[in-house]
Design a protein around this nucleic acid. Structure first.
Lengths: 225, 225, 225, 225
DNA sequence: TATGAATGAGTCTTCATTCAT
DNA sequence: TATGAATGAAGACTCATTCAT
């Protein structure tokens, strides 16, 4: 019998090695040999676990998104209040980018560009961004609807607002990528969340007595960062 | 002087040819020979006007940004009311992406990825994204400050809010790129603007008489899309 | 002894698997892994029975030739008349190629090319084509000599004529390979045999009474296909 | 203006360099770098003249066949008598193989094998062997028909006989390839031609007076080599 | 004995850049 | 100034062979 190897585990190992290199050199500048060396294996070995560079990239991206989503979902689920869910979700998402370990944001950006470009190409590995965004929205929309239902948020189109919220997160990420040293991502994230929650707020005059909870906090948020 | 003018003009011609190719094939997939052919010149001739591919890319990106900014500034300047400036600016920015002529958004995305990727490399092509974002902010901040001053907007940190606004625009652009057919960029843009303006609004109860203009409109915006 | 027999048997099994793959994909396109899979064994196992790919190829070719020769010899031996031996030998040889089972001809062609190509190289796989042709000739020459002796064939250089006969067979095979659908190999084979037998015939005027057998047939052959 | 280069001429130069390498190492063992070095150019330069290795191979083969055919046709056309045309054509064809300069036969063999194997593959460069053989036949058939018409050859199926004749030539070539040192190709060729002409001969008894020419020669041919 | 995971030498091909004209 | 022929470094991928189990 030959060596027993956990194919899945080794694939994951290579993927993680790949992501470390991606973070250092960028996806486009990463050669197969770099990944091999980082993983401590031979060049050819990669091809035992991935059919091509492109497929490896694709799996790396999927893996990354999966990890991000898992983290964000966890934090959202832990929050009880709809406002808290929004705040927590946004900050969690941005936080992932801050995690230095694997430089998510960089890699994400690379993949994004690649996805956009591969749209319509013959490649089997183009990433389905539409579904990813829909996934994101499906995370945010319930919290918004819950807030509306509870009389915490004014009536709105939850899909559109979710899109805007997600857009803001990603846009802030971009700005942070452009200037990591000086751009305080979390502070901007908090300000943005406050802004959104402000907008969700039911106007004082039209407001009955359905805002008994957290008045202190809401006031606190009034001062936009 | 004639020589210099010629030089500049030809450079611009090449740049425009390059952008047409970028739009068709993506920045990463564009070869020097493609640009040369599109421009109707010889491959070597490009190097008479640009020192390297990287430098050409850099100039192309600058050129693109410059065009976008010019368009947006024009429209902002045409608006009188601070709220109108915000709305107009956002929509103008998004509109540029919708312009089919040169597929700006795609190219933009490509450049963005390149910039991020090549951060820290010794390359000729390190776009100063920080400055670009600062430029954007400098476009938005005055409108915000004007609004505050006029008592239209509640007090806020204009830099942070500007960042959030810009972030939202770019984030929406990303989502549109991911799904051009189904994602109605302008509708989302309008909803987002409405949301922001809502948040800027001075709470009804704390509001004196400093909102004499455009009450009708502001009400209209109340229903978030 | 049991071990040795097993070894030989397994080697033969692998060889047969290899030939099935050769027939499907061509010798040059056949990888060791293909052979292993076809044989239902592990890749490494092949190396227990053959020292290298080259050596395996060599043995496969020998095996193939051996099978062909055996079939042809059988049929020649079954014929009594020298003319019948010639006719039967040629048609038997061509028939083997027609056998769909293992696509002999294709493989043969591949091996031929390899042999020619690797002439003079240090490889394990230098097939001794000279000996193979000598073998073929040694099959034909006796029949010719017998025919001469019996006064059926005119005097000739049997070695040269045998070469020509063999050459014709292989040449026809080549043409058939080039156009299997339309080239009727057996019909061409029969025509060629008739032609040769015609040439072997002793001229009518110089002919005494030494052609008592098969006058009907010989007349029949007169009309060249 | 850039250097003026005769594209066609350079392509031919590279082709000839390639064929020299093919002759030395075999087509399959010839690397692009070998061809480049032999041609005294850079590796990349080859790709200025050929789109791929395969296409280069294809053109080399075409070139080779073209040269062979041209030579053979020349010699056939120079002969007046149908028998002379046959003899001359065969010997000319075999002669080309003997030309040491570019080791035609070797290369031919390689290409042949490759063609046979590529039949049915998706490659654009598979060689149309059927047409090549038809070309050969179209060279031989007229001579045969002329001979029949002139009453020199007995009635026959010219297409089939032509096939046999061509087959014999190629078969002899194969044998020569297998054993260049000892196999006297031209002698065998002459013997084969004599054999064929013998077979074409109209039987003495059925012969009227339509063979007045060259009785000496025909007798001479009677002794098969 | 059998295996298949691991390997890296070897190959084709691409393309930015150079430079002779 | 303009050109495009020439180049070679670089990189994805293949596959025969090895060897630990």
């Amino acid at each position: 019998m030959a060596r027993i190897v956990d194919k899945k585990a080794k694939q994951k190992e290579i993927l993680q090695a790949a992501m470390r290199v991606f973070a250092r050199k960028g996806v486009a500048n990463t050669k197969m040999i770099d990944v091999a060396r980082e993983a401590g294996i031979g060049k050819g070995t990669i091809y035992e676990y991935f059919s091509s560079r492109e497929q490896m990239l694709h799996m790396a991206f999927s893996y990354l998104l999966h990890r991000i989503k898992k983290l964000v979902v966890q934090r959202i689920d832990a929050a009880m209040d709809p406002r808290e869910k929004i705040r927590t979700g946004v900050l969690a998402y941005l936080d992932v980018a801050t995690m230095k370990i694997e430089d998510y944001a960089d890699i994400l950006m690379d993949f994004w560009a690649q996805s956009v470009r591969q749209r319509g190409s013959q490649s089997d590995f183009s990433i389905d961004l539409q579904h990813i965004y829909q996934d994101y929205r499906d995370l945010v929309v319930p919290a918004l609807e819950e807030g509306i239902q509870q009389g915490l948020f004014r009536p709105m189109d939850p899909e559109k607002v979710a899109s805007a919220l997600i857009a803001t997160c990603e846009g802030l990420l971009l700005q942070w990528l452009a200037d990591r040293e000086n751009f305080d991502l979390m502070a901007h994230g908090q300000a943005a969340v406050a802004l959104f929650l402000e907008a969700f707020q039911i106007p004082a005059n039209s407001q009955q007595n359905n805002r008994p909870t957290m008045p202190a906090e809401s006031t606190q948020v009034d001062r936009l960062s």
